[in-house]
Amino acid sequence: MFTFLQLQTDTIASAASNVVIEKIAPNTEISVLGFILKGGFFLIPIAILLFYTFYVIIERYLYITKASKTDSKLIQEVGDKLNSGNIEMARIIVERNNTSAANILKEGVLVIGRPIAEIESNMDRAADIEIGEMERRLGHLGLIAGIAPTLGFVGTISGVIKIFYSISVTENISIGNISGGLYEKMISSGAGLIVGIIAYSAYHILNGKIDDFALKIQKQILEFVNIIQRA
């Protein structure tokens, strides 16, 4: 009799164990895309800002890298032609060099013969124009760095409002109901922060490249003025 009862007990325990395992071991895996899509409506504008951010970063990086190239031999060649009195050849040399530095030198070559202050001022204005061209659309990155995290935060807040509204209607205040809805809405905050960090970092990196160019071009202008004064 004891053996029979023990056998029944073991059978019931085994069955209960199987039921528990079946209940607690469902397949909870979710794809990365599926996880991201749970972030809600506000992920759409954040995604648009992300794609635009990458476009601006790539386009500006390629433009700035190309335009800010400086040839150490260029100013030497121009100086040699100016010292020999061949201003026309100096102009041809800077025109065939398609960089911002060459464009600034060209403005100086074109006004040779005028007072030094006027030549230097003309080159400074040309430098400001070239730097302004490099800075185009960089302000958009600064704007996105502020907008994207804000959009993510608004998405999370709207989700929290919906959760509490649902609780007020259904009176279901279970942890699963609250945490399940909350983690989905916090995805938008995380996405917004990531986009903001990318835009903020790119903004300062690209501006750093422009600042380096501005320093180099000021040295080049000074060198050009010294060449004219010695000629």
Rank of each mutant, 00 (worst) to 15 (best):
V94H: 10
A127I: 04
V56C: 04
A15F: 05
A214G: 03
S158H: 01
K162L: 11
T99N: 03
V111E: 08
L62A: 12
K219P: 00
I44E: 00
G155C: 03
R96A: 02
Y203Q: 11
K219W: 00
F164C: 05
D124Q: 14
E130P: 08
I92E: 14
A16P: 01
S174R: 13
A214E: 08
V111S: 10
A202E: 07
H204W: 05
I93G: 03
E171K: 15
T9I: 06
F164K: 07
S17Q: 14
I131F: 03
K106L: 11
I92G: 02
N226R: 15
F35L: 12
G155T: 01
K185D: 00
Q6F: 08
I163P: 08
D10Q: 07
G34C: 06
G181S: 11
R91G: 10
I57G: 07
E171W: 02
S72K: 12
T150Y: 04
L82V: 14
D211S: 15
L49D: 04
F51E: 01
A127M: 12
I163Y: 02
I116P: 01
D211A: 13
N177F: 09
I64N: 05
L43M: 10
S166K: 06
E29F: 01
V20N: 08
K216A: 05
G196D: 02
S72C: 00
Q8N: 12
I197P: 09
L37E: 13
S121T: 04
S188Y: 00
H140I: 13
E184L: 03
V20R: 05
L49F: 06
P26N: 10
G208K: 08
D71L: 05
